[in-house]
Computed example of a mutant assay.
Amino acid sequence: MRQRTYNLISTSILYLMFVSVGQAQSVFNVIPLGVKGGGAEGNLSAYMVAPVNSQAYVCLDGGTVRQGIEVAVANGAFAATADQVSRSFVKGFLISHAHLDHVSGMITNAPEDTAKFIYAFPKCLEIIKNHYFNWESWPNFGSEGVNPLKKYTYKPLSEGQDIPLENTEMTLKTFSLSHGNPYESAAFLIQTNGKQVLYFGDTGPDEVEKSTKLQKVWEAVAPLIKAKTLTGIFMEVSYPNEQPDNKLFGHLTPNWLMKEMEKLAVLAGKENMRDLRVIITHIKPAGQNEIIIKGQLESNNALGLKIIYPEQGTAFEL
């Protein structure tokens, strides 16, 4: 009887240790509101991210917002209404660049929204202010410009600067990207409790863009991969390998993504790249693109990356 009791206690301790480790490994909760590139009107780039067990999210880009939240609520991602999620859970938008497939949901849903922050590079904020929130394209819900309604407060970003994300438990560091040189996009490194997740807006490969911007990001995050604190990388693959380099328009193919991952592996160590989670975003919806891109990624994954294809409204943890 004593031995049986000891075995039960030992089993319980091992179970609790396993659960504790599993919980420690999940740091961020992610709700994809939109996962496609331009053309998929109701499913465009936007990802809600918060620490696990927190309801204070930021939205990475804002292509599709309300419709994505409604899908997420229907899928059980939230124990709340779409109105509550949209108005109360989202504390701010991190906008990588001002192309319509990354901002249209944020803009069109502004009339029903509550006060929030928009984080972006100054040029991106200028485009939002001058071309969208200008009382011609849409009422000015921004904090600057012509007769501002001041619902959204602009937060200009500086490359490499660590800042708090207001009303959340997260901090942000931003990197400049080339999205069809000289057009600027951004990558966001979000941190909480000593762990990070990295989100890329649209970007082309350094070799095609005649740039070193991606290399600078790899140099910055390689130590985090070595330390096993980077929980995942969101990165776009818009076109299949058949797309010519001169028709990439600042985007990636499976081959170019893997070439950039190889550059990262040189800095981080190939042994540390295995099972690194890479979340594929912004696949263009035309034709058989998605099927082709998935096949090309899976057949060229020599590094053993854990490739994730997010689905609209389906929550996952990193």
Rank of each mutant, 00 (worst) to 15 (best):
L8R: 10
S10H: 10
L14R: 12
L14K: 13
Y15C: 08
S20C: 14
V21C: 10
V27D: 01
P32W: 08
G39E: 14
Q55F: 07
Y57D: 01
G63F: 10
T64Y: 01
T64N: 05
G68H: 08
E70A: 12
V71A: 13
A72M: 05
V73E: 03
V73S: 05
A74H: 08
V85L: 03
S86E: 13
S86F: 15
R87T: 09
R87I: 05
F93N: 02
I95A: 02
S96A: 15
H97P: 00
H99W: 05
H99G: 02
D101P: 00
V103T: 11
I107C: 02
D113T: 06
E126D: 15
W135R: 09
N140A: 11
F141Y: 15
T153Y: 01
Y154A: 02
D162P: 04
M170I: 12
L172D: 02
L172F: 04
S176Q: 12
S178C: 03
H179K: 13
P182N: 06
A187N: 10
F188I: 03
L189S: 09
L189Y: 05
T192H: 15
Y199G: 07
G201R: 10
G204M: 07
D206I: 09
E209W: 03
A220K: 11
T229V: 15
T229D: 11
T229Q: 15
Y239A: 08
P240I: 09
D245S: 08
F249W: 10
G250P: 00
T253K: 14
W256N: 03
R274D: 03
I279Q: 10
Q288R: 08
E290M: 06
I292K: 09
G295A: 03
Q296W: 10
E298S: 10
Q312I: 08
E317T: 13
